[in-house]
Each structure stands twice: as C-alpha cells, then as structure tokens.
C-alpha cells in the first residue's frame, strides 16, 4: 500500500508540473482577440510598398509568395476592415460550388513598419454567416447539428452504445 501512495504522489506532481509549466502561454481569460476566438498570427513582413496595393484591393506579391511557401490557400483581394484604421480583410476566391461567394480568410494589420498577417479563427465565420446559411439563430445548435453535424452523429452513437452496453451487462430475461 505504501508503494501505491508513492506512485500517486509522483503522478500528481508530474501532472501538476506539466499543467503549471503550461500556464504561462495559455491565452488570457476573456481576451476577445485570443486565437480561439478571433484570429491566429501567422507571420509578419516588412510593409514597404505593399500598403498601397492593399489599399487598392490587390494582394502584394510578397504576401502571396509567403503564403504559398507555408501551403496556405492563396487570397484574391483585400478590403479595408470597417471600423479599423490600418487593417485589411483578405478574401480567398470561390473554389467550391457550395460557396457562391468568396470567403473572408486572412486579416492584415499594420503595426509600425510591419504588416502582421493573421488568419481568422473559423468561429468568426460561424458567427457572421451561420444564421444566413442555416436559418438557425442559435449558433450552438447550428454548429452542433450542421457545421459539425458528424460529431453530433458520433455523440448520438456514443449514447446509443452506452444504452446497449448497459443492456448487455445488466438486463436478464430479455430477448436482447
């Protein structure tokens, strides 16, 4: 029994250690710009002359090359973000029949002399377009049943599995 306690202690310390070690890099609580909520940073470039191109709605060559190197989808045009001074939303072209329109995908932010390239978290699209595309105002429901409907199918199968498991384990004098 003593060995068991020692193992418990060691495991607890290990788990605690890993979790505390991580704490520093976890995003802040309630941060509206956290990667999971708003966007995740990809890389940054020197601004140079690309700002003008972005203002005209074109995508500068440097950004396209940098995206291509990292295997990201290539953008088609840029647009100024409403309500922000030096920010641009970057769209990707329509590639698939299910998307009649092009998609907002990247965001470019100018800070000092650098262009920071961000990618929108996919929740942003759910929030903006989910109601229009699925007709369900409750985002959790349309996420659950439509965008990630396959997960919910899995969930239903899990509960069904549990039901059948309990039948197998406990039910006697039954035909099943």
């Amino acid at each position: 029994m003593k060995g068991h306690k020692a193992i418990t202690l060691i495991l607890m310390i290990l788990l605690c250690g890993v979790l505390v070690y991580v704490a520093e890099d976890i995003p802040d609580f309630g941060d509206p710009k956290a990667p999971a909520i708003k966007y995740v940073k990809l890389f940054h470039l020197e601004a140079g002359a690309s700002e003008n191109a972005l203002n005209q709605g074109r995508i500068p060559e440097t950004i396209s090359i940098a995206l291509k190197e990292r295997k990201f989808p290539l953008p088609s045009r840029a647009e100024k973000t409403p309500g922000a001074e030096n920010d641009w939303d970057v769209f990707i072209p329509k590639e698939e029949a299910y998307y009649p329109k092009e998609e907002k995908f990247y965001r470019i932010k100018k800070e000092g002399e650098r262009l920071h390239l961000y990618r929108y978290a996919f929740v942003v699209r759910w929030i903006e377009k989910g109601f229009k595309e699925t007709g369900a105002p409750n985002m959790v429901t349309h996420g659950l049943a439509d965008y990630r409907g396959y997960d919910t199918l899995g969930e239903t199968v899990v509960i069904f599995t549990a039901g059948v498991s309990v039948i197998l384990l406990l039910r006697r004098r039954s035909r099943l």
Partner: peptide, 28 residues
C-alpha cells in the same frame, strides 16, 4: 465563442455514457 460549447456538449454526452457503463459494471 460557440465552438467550445458545441464540443463540450458532445464531450458531456461521452462522459455520461462512460459513467453509465462504469456504474453498471460496479453493480455487476
């Protein structure tokens, strides 16, 4: 963010299922 809610609804059901199986094992 609605995505964690979606994921956790799924995960809660999984937890419920595990607990149900565990309880029936304990009964046996």
């Amino acid at each position: 963010n609605p995505l964690p809610h979606v994921l956790i609804l799924t995960a809660i059901v999984v937890a419920v299922a595990t607990t149900a199986v565990a309880l029936s094992l304990i009964i046996r």
